[in-house]
Amino acid sequence: MTETAPAPSPSFTLALLGRFELIGPDGAVSLPNKKLAGLLAYLACTAPQPQHREKLSTLLWGSHFEAQAKQNLRQALFKLRQVLGQSALRSDGEFISLNAVVITCDVPQFERLVRKGSRDALTAAADLYRGRLVDDIAVNAEGWSEWLAGERERLSELAVGAMVALGDQELSDGRAGDALLAGQRANALNSMREDAHRLIMRALSAAGRNAEALKYYQAVVALLKQELGTAPDATTSALAAELRKVQEHKIVLPAAEPTADLSHQAEHVFGNDRPSVAVLPFRNMGDETEQDYFADGVTADIITALSRSRAGGDRGRIELCPSGQGNDQPAECAATRCAIRPERSYSQGGQPHSRLGRAHSYRKRGPGLVQSLRPPPGRHLRPAGRRQQQCCRSRRSRRS
């Protein structure tokens, strides 16, 4: 019984994704000129499909007369055989092809990994894509430039798709950090791909950074409007709406009963010696409904900043109250009637507190969010004195 001899390993390794790099048995191999490297790269990308001699001569020497172009091609093939060996190139009359047994290339390997689609294959494909196709090869030929531009775009889109697919698998397996890295790599290759932006938003939300995901969506809206003059597609907008609901659920902690008496809530929040802080949300007053997320983000930022100003103690409580309609008055509920007074400023330890002052100066329509916060230990939050209130009113009158 005879045994089949194993296939010989390739003698040369050609890397085209990123910088052109040819490695032989004795190390790196340099080619005499750029057109020779371009010819080898083209044959490697199209292997094992044979290429017609006339097509090859037009690709790199299209500006020459036909006879001169064919002569240049013959010389280039002769030099490649000298470097790679006679068996590296296969010739069948008018057709030339690269022998994959002698030389292996990263481009066909990258495409096979992407088609395979498993997590390990996609990870290997993402690592294999080091940059644009032959980023350091510049050949002054129209045919070469057209082919190279199309091939670069095709391979770049394959890489972005592979990274997004890898991120989706990482996210489904609960690895939000790895999914975020995959999305960021895909976005670095093509910042106009919304599927990469959606992956980043979902990864941020899965990592507990929902407010940051909404801010990222805000940046995506601005980018698409600036670069393409368009808004995010329906899928991206729907994802942002879901994230806003998640953010609202995080901000509005579970209340008692839906039918609970609001006056009782106000008494619970404000009927004690602990001072309280109320934050009213913003409402989009323009015609562009896609800017609603910005109002939600500002409200979330204010609440987050107030929460971080506390040094210890239990977390504050947030109540959701209906707002007044058609006017600029505070929310019409017992809690906000007790707490939100736009003309009243607050100070911390007797000094005006800029954050709280700004929070209480917002007079926007919309549902009222009432947040009660305890001051840090040893610090007291109290209304400003009569003289400070008069100074604030005089400054407002001068500005108006």
Rank of each mutant, 00 (worst) to 15 (best):
E3P: 01
S11H: 14
E21F: 08
E21A: 13
L22P: 02
I23G: 01
G24A: 06
N33D: 14
A37C: 05
G38Q: 01
L40V: 05
A41N: 00
L43P: 03
C45F: 00
T46F: 07
Q49K: 14
P50N: 02
P50H: 03
K55N: 08
K55W: 06
S57Y: 03
T58V: 09
A67G: 15
A69K: 08
N72C: 06
L80N: 04
R81E: 15
V83Y: 02
S87E: 15
A88N: 09
S91C: 03
G93N: 11
G93P: 08
G93V: 10
E94M: 07
V101T: 08
V101E: 11
T104C: 01
T104H: 00
C105H: 07
D106R: 07
Q109H: 03
E111K: 13
V114N: 02
V139P: 01
G143L: 04
W147Y: 10
R152H: 02
L155C: 01
S156Y: 02
Q169N: 07
E170W: 05
G174N: 04
D178Y: 05
L180I: 00
L181S: 14
L181C: 09
N187V: 11
N190K: 12
E194V: 03
R198D: 03
I200G: 02
R202E: 04
R202F: 00
A203S: 12
A203W: 02
L214Q: 04
V220W: 02
L223E: 05
L223Y: 03
K225Q: 10
E227G: 00
A238G: 05
V246T: 09
K250S: 05
I251E: 13
P258A: 09
T259G: 14
L262C: 07
S263K: 05
H264Q: 15
H264W: 12
G271I: 08
D273N: 06
A295H: 05
T299R: 04
I302M: 12
I303S: 09
S307E: 15
G312K: 13
G313F: 09
R317P: 04
E319R: 11
S323R: 10
N327R: 08
D328Y: 12
D328G: 13
C333D: 13
C333M: 06
T336K: 10
E343I: 01
Y346Q: 03
S347M: 13
G349D: 15
R355C: 12
L369C: 02
V370T: 11
Q371S: 10
Q371C: 14
S372R: 15
R374P: 07
P375A: 14
P375Y: 10
P377Y: 06
G378W: 06
R399F: 13
